[in-house]
Structure formats: C-alpha cells, structure tokens
C-alpha cells in the first residue's frame, strides 16, 4: 500500500490524518447544512449560524403532509426493487450463456452487447417513449420498469465475474449428471455472489436515482418517483427551504446507510467492471 511512504511514517503520517480530515470535512459540509437546515424553522434558514435555535423535528413529519412523500418513497422502492430483481435475473442467465455454454454465434452476439455499452442512453430514449405511447404504457409502472429490466452492462459485469470461476467445478458437476440448469443454480450462482451483490447495489441505486425516464413517463403525481417528486416539491413550495431540505435528507440518508454497510461489495464491483473493461 505504502509505495511512497516516508522514512518515518508515524511522525509524518499524522499530517496526512489531519489533511484527510480537513478534506473529508469539506466534502461533508453540504450534508451537514442539509440536515441542520431540515431542522430549522423557516425564519432561520438565511441565518449565518447553521444551528437552529431549537430542533424542529416536526419538519420531517410535515413533509409527509405537504406532499405525498410516502407515496414517492414507495414508488421509488417499488420500481427500483422490480428493476433490480429482473435485471439481475436476466443478466445472470445471459452471462451464464455467454461464459459457460458453447453455441454458434456466441461471440458475435456478445460483441453486439459490448458495442452498445458505449451507446448514449439518449439515442434510444425518444423512440422508447414513442414505443411506450403505442403500447399504451405511458404513466404506468410496467412502462417504467420494462426497458430497464435488461442490461448489457449487467450481463458484461457478471460474465467477467463468471469467467473467474474455474471450469473444473462445473465439469465435475456435469460428470455427476447435473443439467445445465442445475449447474447454473447450484454451482455458478452461489459462486458469483459477490458480483451479483455488486450488480444489485449498482442497479438499485441507479434506479432509485433515475430521473430522465420517470420524468417523461409519469404524469400523475401519485406515480412520481422520489427524484421527480422532489423536483415537483421544489417548484411547488420552493420557498420552504427547511421542508425541502428535510425531504432531501430523507431521500439521501438511505443511500448513505446502504453504502456504509455494503461498500466492500461495491468497491470490488467497480474494480471488476472498470479495470477489466
């Protein structure tokens, strides 16, 4: 780790602790302001001091009565969960076909998948929206979920992971008479667990944050996901900075908690998708 460590790390190492703390503090300050402003009375928002004169925990409850915040929350969790589930299942199965099965045309189809990784999402979003109009799926959750249920990136990521699993394991299972389906379920899937967890977090967070597609797809306020709902909140009662910050806090906090607990998987996933790519 310490490639350039100086001769006496214990003495000068403290300097780096202080430096990193200062940098970490700067990165954290916006979040601190966010939480504290969410606890202020409206009149104190513009104050020089970030601290409220009294902590108004009621702001957080008020958010739920001003806008259907609970509904937004639920919609986001509902959509993100379904997308994640479907995308992980389809990607894992496709990755198995690309990494373990021999079939004609496999490498060509995989190349087609790979080449779309560079494709800007914008290229297909206009036509996808027209397709949704023709299918009558605008403003429905099915229309929101369906296009994201498949992912070239997820397939690529899991294929990379499955290639690191020794083939002797599934050969042994094959000799024992296991079917391809058994091998997939009992050998490959359990061994790909770290990759699958990483993909799950990526997909879930990506969809929890997703903005463009829900923004154009959803018409009824009851169907808004969190990002669209927050935007709506800002345009409706943008002057109530304290309530908006309470809402923003509640939408950011779950992600921070998620990251703190699952960062081990996430980081190995980033390195897998990145360095090997």
């Amino acid at each position: 780790m310490s490639h350039a460590s100086p001769s006496s790390p214990k003495v000068s190492g403290m300097r780096y602790h202080v430096l990193l703390t200062v940098l970490g503090l700067i990165m954290t300050l916006p979040f601190v302001w966010m939480v504290l402003t969410g606890l202020k009375p409206l009149a104190e928002v513009a104050n020089e001091s970030w601290l409220p004169s009294e902590f108004q925990w009621g702001n957080f409850a008020e958010v739920f009565s001003v806008i259907p915040f609970f509904q937004f929350y639920w919609n986001s969790l509902f959509v993100a969960s379904w997308v994640t589930f479907l995308q992980v299942v389809t990607s894992a199965m496709a990755a198995y076909a690309f990494s373990r099965l021999q079939w004609p045309g496999r490498d060509k189809v995989f190349l087609l998948y790979l080449s779309t990784l560079m494709l800007p999402g914008l290229v297909v979003i206009i036509t996808n929206y027209q397709i949704m109009i023709h299918l009558g799926l605008v403003d429905t959750f099915i229309g929101l979920i369906l296009p994201s249920a498949f992912s070239a990136f997820g397939t690529f990521l899991l294929r990379q992971f499955m290639l690191t699993i020794p083939t002797s394991l599934d050969e042994a299972a094959e000799i024992d008479g296991a079917s391809k389906w058994r091998i997939f379920l009992d050998v490959i899937l359990p061994l790909s667990r770290p990759g699958i967890i990483a993909l799950t977090i990526f997909t879930f967070v990506g969809n929890y944050q997703s903005f463009f597609w829900p923004l154009v797809m959803m018409r009824h306020q009851d169907h808004y996901t969190l990002p669209v709902g927050l935007l709506f909140f800002d345009s409706e009662v943008g002057q109530s900075t304290h309530l908006l910050m309470a809402a923003v806090t509640m939408s950011v906090l779950p992600m921070i908690i998620l990251f703190v607990f699952l960062q081990k998987f996430l980081i190995s996933g980033i390195q897998l998708g990145g360095v090997k790519g």
């Binding site: 389809t90 199965m93 076909a97 087609l112 494709l119 297909v124 206009i126 036509t127 397709i131 369906l146």
Partner: peptide, 28 residues
C-alpha cells in the same frame, strides 16, 4: 440442442435487448 439450451438462458435478456435497444436504435 446447444443453441436451444443457450436460448433458454439468453432469451429473456436478448428479447429485451432487441426490443428496447436495437429496435429503438434503428427507429431513431
């Protein structure tokens, strides 16, 4: 037979890939 087995696994992903990436790409 191999192709059939592969398609069982690849099918769902490939269908979505064609419907929401390749076809919209051509249309666009």
């Amino acid at each position: 037979g191999r192709l059939a087995t592969a398609m069982v696994f690849l099918g769902p992903s490939l269908l979505g890939f064609l419907a929401f990436t390749i076809v919209p790409l051509g249309l666009s």
